[in-house]
Design a binder for these strands. Sequence first.
DNA 1: GGGTTGTTTGGAACAGTTCCAAACTATTGA
DNA 2: TCAATAGTTTGGAACTGTTCCAAACAACCC
Lengths: 150, 150
Amino acid sequence: MNTPLDTSRDRPFSQTLRRLKDAGLRPTRQRLALGKLLFDAGDRHVTAEQLHAEAGSKGIKVSLATIYNTLNQFTESGLMREVVVAPGRSYYDTNTEDHHHFFYEDDGSLKDIPHDAIALSAMPDAPEDAEVARVDVIVRLCRAVDNQSQ
Amino acid sequence: MNTPLDTSRDRPFSQTLRRLKDAGLRPTRQRLALGKLLFDAGDRHVTAEQLHAEAGSKGIKVSLATIYNTLNQFTESGLMREVVVAPGRSYYDTNTEDHHHFFYEDDGSLKDIPHDAIALSAMPDAPEDAEVARVDVIVRLCRAVDNQSQ
DNA sequence: GGGTTGTTTGGAACAGTTCCAAACTATTGA
DNA sequence: TCAATAGTTTGGAACTGTTCCAAACAACCC
């Protein structure tokens, strides 16, 4: 009952399906399920372990190795981005636009900084024979202990 | 033959000795040697493995565990700073001033960005109940492939 | 359907870091 | 100067996060 071009009432997986196809990745059960978790809920920041736990808790059976494979493939094909904020674990971000991050040191969570809320006024020249691949700004936050002092 | 207050011709270790004392760390053979490597050569960025190799190649016998202990203690007492740029390894920086970094993705090396070469014009408000602990800017560089195109 | 190729999987392997208990060393005070 | 004490170092085991591997499996194409 859908016209062929109707995208307004996609079946559950078609958004992810499209992304996978465009990226040249086979739409397997695992990739579809993980893609749905990742892309259907707005901007997300996950570690491999977190995603694995989340999938498990929703009854999706995926091995940890596949989680790593998938996150890396998604990143390589530009569907996600890696964010380096803490030693010892990698975060993956579903927002691939040019943007920066708040990092809560207390609980290890990440939050996008609205694009227009930050700007670099002076940019250093890249040294000779090198070019800027990307600029990352990380604003590290800690829980305010006391709002009254000062 | 030195006057007690003469600091102009320090013995080899006295600069590091002073730092250790001020930080409340016992000036052991290992800490003095590592401190000398780290602080006598201007601003440095090292990983534990690198420092271990460097010490080894200079005939300083220190275990890797001690390298880690020392870098962590130096960092806790404000003598150094940790810089997070790549997943899987920690860099330690002898420059504790407020500054940012170039990171060469090709060879994993770090370089300070001159303090006045970069500036954040707009700073996002920290969310309620959190405060900014630090802002890190990392300019990721890759080797320019070709200077002629464009 | 059947062959081909790409994917998933559990477990082993790895890298970087921390932990541990025993040996050692700087410091302190008598 | 020496002994007692408290802090430090050490090798190796343990741990964490990630990658590798070969076998089983699933998607794709004709």
